[in-house]
Amino acid sequence: MFEITEKKKLAHLVYQFKIKAPSIAKKREAGQFVILRMNEHGERIPLTIADSDNEAGTITVIVQEVGRSTMLLSGLDAGDTILDVVGPLGMPTHIENFGRAVCVGGGIGTAVTFPIGAALKEAGNEVISIIGSRTKELLILEEEMRSVSDELLVTTDDGSYGHHGFVTDVLKNLLDDKKKPVDIVIAVGPVPMMRAVAEVTRPYKVKTLASLNPIMVDGTGMCGACRVTIAGEVKFVCVDGPEFDAHDTDFDELIMRNRSYFKEEKTATEEYAYHQGQGGCCDEKKTDA
C-alpha cells in the first residue's frame, strides 16, 4: 500500500499527488515513470514521476482525468492509499550540456518536461521552455517551469493567455533566430503535438526528442503492448524509452495503437460515472432532481 500524502488541483481535471514511495524517490531520475494500480480490480497505468523528495520519501505525479483509471485516482485524497506503485521504470533522459535546449510541453505533457528541464538546467544548459494549453485554465506548472528555465514562453490555443496560437509557432520563431542556434528540442504532450514539433524542427536538422506514451501493461518488457516503430525498427517504450528521436518516430502508428480500446474505455468510463451517481437520465435517483 502506498499512501497519498498530498493532493493539489492544478487545473481543470488535472491533479498533483505526492505519494509515499521512499525507495522509488531515492532512485528515480528525470524521464522515468511509475505504473500504478489503484485497487484489486484496477488497471496498471503509467504516470511520469514529475518530481521527488528524498527526505520526505515521496514522489510527485501529475494526472489528467481522461478515463476510468485516471478518474479513480483523481477521486482519491491525502490519506488514501494506492494498492501498487512500481518504478522507476524506463530509461532516464540522457542529460548533458547540449548548450541551448528547448523544452516543449503541451497540456499535461508539461508534467514530464518539468523534471527534464530541471535536469538540463542543472547540467548547465541554457533552457528555454515553451508550454501551451488549449486555454488559460488548463495551463499547469507555469511557476515551476519558470524556475528551471532561462526563458519561458506560454501559448494558448484560444489566446486567453500568453501567445495566441500553438507551441509550434513559437518554436519556429526560436529556430529562425540564426544568431542563437538551438542544440536540442525535447517535446512532450499529446501525440499530434509531438508529431507537429518533429515536422517543425526537421528542416532545421535540430535533434528532437519526444517522450512517447503508448498503452502499457507490465512496464518491464514482458508483453510488447508498448511497441512503437522507430526508424523502421520495433522498440518497447517501457524498457527502451520512453524518449526517442522524434524524427524517426512513427507517430501515426502510435495514435492508432493508442485508440485500441476506444470502445472498451468508453464502457468503463460510463460504468464508473454511473456508479458515481452521475449516470444522467437513466439514474433513478436523479430523475426528480
Binding site: 480490480h41 476510468r68 480500446y261 472498451e264 468503463a268
Partner: peptide, 22 residues
C-alpha cells in the same frame, strides 16, 4: 501471447468491465 494472456489471466480482462483491463 504474453500480452493477451497477461491481460486475461493476471489482469482478469475476461471479467471486464468488472475488472478495469480490457
Amino acid at each position: 501471447a504474453n500480452e493477451f494472456l497477461t491481460r486475461v489471466n493476471l489482469m482478469k480482462a475476461f471479467q471486464f468491465p468488472e475488472y478495469d483491463t480490457p
